[in-house]
């Protein structure tokens, strides 16, 4: 039993050391963001700023309107998450409990989307929106969310396990499929809804390529593109403000993660499993 205990302590020590090495870059980034000496050259590594100052943050604030990017990204992430998850639940319900012609074909058409990488249809999609005059608006970022194939697939798996008898009792009371959807299916699907919302929100928050392509006006941009644009302008000069921006753009999702870590970790784990 003693050797087992030693093994356990050794595992903790090894995992702890590796974790420390993994997390040092984050700490160093925070240190640099408060270091007045982080200018065009990186200062020597230190655990604490050589010259503590909030200059980098005030300097960054003058060049990049990060508050605006937060707002744009939050707005789009919220709207897109709501739309995609709600319509995924509707599809999932129809696929799991509905009986109608063409169900199987529609289901397969939807699943097949997962085999078509977004990037391989990006150019014609861009041209489509160009011809509709919708470039540089949020429509190209929102409209595609009405078909969330992955979500519909997971929703169907989960809704299929809800007993038919619950729905039948609604129908017997004279309620229709819509009442069944809103009063039985949605309330009983809270875990899968939460999971899909978490996955979608994180994906939306990090989206980069498509906003880069369709939004030309920097004021309307999302945080990833805005920060990358700032970074390209500042490339190889002034490390301090760059690290300040890196810290600022990482804060919202990190805070959300620390509060909801149990749910987020469970959602990510579930997304990798067939059910």
């Amino acid at each position: 039993m003693k050797s087992q205990k030693i093994g356990k302590v050794a595992t903790i020590v090894i995992l702890g050391v590796i974790l420390a090495i993994v997390l040092v870059p984050i700490w160093w980034t925070i240190v640099l963001s408060f270091d007045r000496t982080a200018t065009t050259q990186l200062p020597e590594f230190s655990w604490w700023p050589h010259e503590f100052s909030t200059f980098n943050y005030t300097a960054a604030a003058k060049i990049i309107d990060i508050g605006r990017y937060y707002f744009n990204t939050l707005f789009l992430a919220a709207v897109n998450t709501l739309i995609s998850v709600f319509f995924a639940m509707m599809c999932g319900f129809a696929f799991a409990k509905g009986k109608f012609h063409g169900k199987k074909i529609i289901y397969i058409l939807m699943l097949a989307v997962m085999m078509v990488p977004f990037e391989s249809r990006m150019v014609p999609l861009y041209i489509e929106y160009r011809d509709w005059g919708l470039l540089n608006t949020y429509w190209p970022l929102i409209l595609g969310q009405f078909a969330y194939a992955y979500g519909a697939f997971f929703a169907r798996q989960n809704i299929a396990s809800i007993p038919d008898s619950l729905l039948e009792s609604v129908y017997l009371d004279g309620g229709g499929v819509w009442r069944g959807f809103f009063s039985i299916i949605l309330p009983l699907s809270k875990p899968i809804i939460a999971t899909l919302c978490i996955l979608q929100f994180i994906a939306q928050w990090n989206s980069y390529l498509w906003p880069l392509v369709v939004i030309r006006d920097l004021k309307k941009q999302v945080i990833s593109v805005g920060v990358a644009f700032f970074n390209a302008q500042q490339n190889s000069v002034y490390y301090g403000p760059r690290m300040a921006v890196a810290v600022l753009s990482a804060i919202p999702l990190t805070i959300v993660f620390l509060f909801l870590q149990k749910n987020i970790v469970a959602s990510i784990a579930v997304s990798g499993m067939k059910q």
């Binding site: 490390y239 990482a250 919202p252």
Partner: peptide
């Protein structure tokens, strides 16, 4: 350990890139 090791994955992608330009 699960949270600690997962943390780098949750940090906004673009922040990680800026960070690694320095690293």
């Amino acid at each position: 350990f699960r949270i600690g090791y997962y943390l780098p994955n949750i940090i906004t992608g673009v922040s990680v890139i800026l960070m690694f330009q320095a690293v």
